[in-house]
Amino acid sequence: MQDISYNKRFEYNWDVPFKVTLGESYFRFLDGLKNKKILGNICPKCNGLHVPARPFCDKCLVEITKWYETSGIVTIESFSVTYVKFLGLPDPPHITGIVRAENAVTSFLHQIGGIPYDEPKELDEKTKIGMKLKPVWAEKRIGDIQDILYFTPVDA
């Protein structure tokens, strides 16, 4: 058996940037966010409205070129309230949710906020699947998914 008295731990980290240039479908979707619009595109083969917009339809493997401006209102497909702090991840409590734009065939991950609470536990009662949400736009928008700060209940 090993003599673990000699064992020694090495601590280090990786920190490396990756740069990419996104093509037209990503550009138009993100540019839409800069102008406070949530754009989707419609697959010519299955007619599915994809929000966020996609370069191609995963189901049909065809390019998507028809664009559609959504109302910006989304409904909660599912959500989870995080109560614990993880290294490198946002501070609790915070709600991340799967939301779906009106008549879209795809849903997307985003942050849900603006729900008042005294005890974090209340967030699990007040947030409901099926709830309608509207986007809360950032002041300074640069064409990024976080140009939407979070989604908040429509009647908030």
Partner: peptide, 16 residues
């Protein structure tokens, strides 16, 4: 097109 950047950032601790 739109240029974007993100980072790969992890902390490690390995036994010898």
């Amino acid at each position: 097109v739109i240029k974007k950047e993100w980072r790969f950032n992890f902390d490690f601790s390995v036994a010898s």
